[in-house]
Write a protein that binds this DNA or RNA. Sequence first.
DNA 1: CGCAAATTTGAGAGTCGTCAAACATAGTGG
DNA 2: CCACTATGTTTGACGACTCTCAAATTTGCG
Lengths: 245, 245
Amino acid sequence: MTGQTPRMRQKAPPPLEIRARPFGRRNGTGPAPTILSRIEQTDLIKIATAIPYPKGGITVFTEGEEIHYLYVVAQGALRISRHLEGGRRQVLAFMWPGDVCGLAEQGHHINSAETLTPALLYRIPIDHLRRLLSHQPRLQLHLLAKAAHELRAAQRQIILLGQPDMTSRVAAFILDLCQQFHYFDARSADLRLPMTRFDIADYLGTTPETVTRAFTRLEEGGVILRLSPKHLQIRSMPKLMALSR
Amino acid sequence: MTGQTPRMRQKAPPPLEIRARPFGRRNGTGPAPTILSRIEQTDLIKIATAIPYPKGGITVFTEGEEIHYLYVVAQGALRISRHLEGGRRQVLAFMWPGDVCGLAEQGHHINSAETLTPALLYRIPIDHLRRLLSHQPRLQLHLLAKAAHELRAAQRQIILLGQPDMTSRVAAFILDLCQQFHYFDARSADLRLPMTRFDIADYLGTTPETVTRAFTRLEEGGVILRLSPKHLQIRSMPKLMALSR
DNA sequence: CGCAAATTTGAGAGTCGTCAAACATAGTGG
DNA sequence: CCACTATGTTTGACGACTCTCAAATTTGCG
């Protein structure tokens, strides 16, 4: 456990439009942090309850469960996964402050969510939300923008998984993580990984051993340095970006 | 080219809610066909223009282009792809009647879309749409539901790409195609593939040769029969489902 | 400090990507 | 109508990589 208590940061909210923004950051995880502040500007916050999760490894919801709430990450990180018939587990996404869980689900959860670190989540009763939605076009646009954001994130992962070469996949994964400023310090180039090798493997569709070997190769290539299993230092961002294509 | 001219079929539209429906079909492509009829019930149709694309291989839009329209597939099939730096192409999705393109894009297209077959698309000017959206909560909910649907589709593909075994990937892909009733006749178990081996390979993150080898193995295992490269017959649906896990 | 869990490394079998060539198909023009 | 051609598909061979199983090592926590 990293024991981080990431604080949220505020930015000037961009205009509330779907198409707005000129261009997303290359490989960026998008405008997640700004969304949080927006959530707090909307009426959503009035019906939301902030729920603290004191440590990592806590289940937020499980696949099959009936849906009662929509969750918005305020602090910390989540793992969204689905258990497949063969016993395999696919990690569909990692969620960061500002991300919304459960938009693609209907009636019952099809995915599970667990905390990776201590976390704070906004919990919004679905019934209230539905009532609010029918009268608040702004709120709907907001959610639509969130859904579009999640969709872009999913597309990034599809591209990631499309890489045949595992070293490239891991490189692209690390690069994506570098967009999470709570876990990446751009000045010192220090990157904290809140998840295990198993999580990474299940996210990238491979095994923990192969992930480790990819890390080893990246280290040998002078791309990264492993200060500890969950604490990396990016030695060469250009090399990382070259690899992740 | 298959030369198909698929007609659309109407169903009773389900209630217009995000969470509605009890449970999505296993591995299903979701409620796509019903959406079409809904599109036609909304005011969306009033500002939409039906554009015919007489054959496959026509570009609808290209990445980098400014966004002017939102597209809804009325008939035919589309390929959504992105060209990566290494010269690789990732096919992000195939789109079928009722599917909406461009929900995850902002300002400029980040993906390209081409027809796989002759197609008919509804083209909706983005400016008009935006004006309409600000006053029509129902329409927004509609789009939100569409975005959620696309997200689920993306998650299915993530799970698909997570399969380490290529035969399973192809099996899961075929199973997904069987949900497209314009291309799959459940009675005769005939399945038409509107896309090439290259398209399938770029969708599954592999090469055309490997896709072919997977087809060969499936045929040897009595799962499918290749009547022609783009015309399959499902010999054993249970085997197909067992493989695709 | 000690222990359980996670990570890393090693060895062998199988699979995939690459390159190359044979084959089939569809569309074209004579 | 048929031959021709370009495109798409299938098969083969080989090297590289990944998965599996196993063991050694390190880490993090009580």
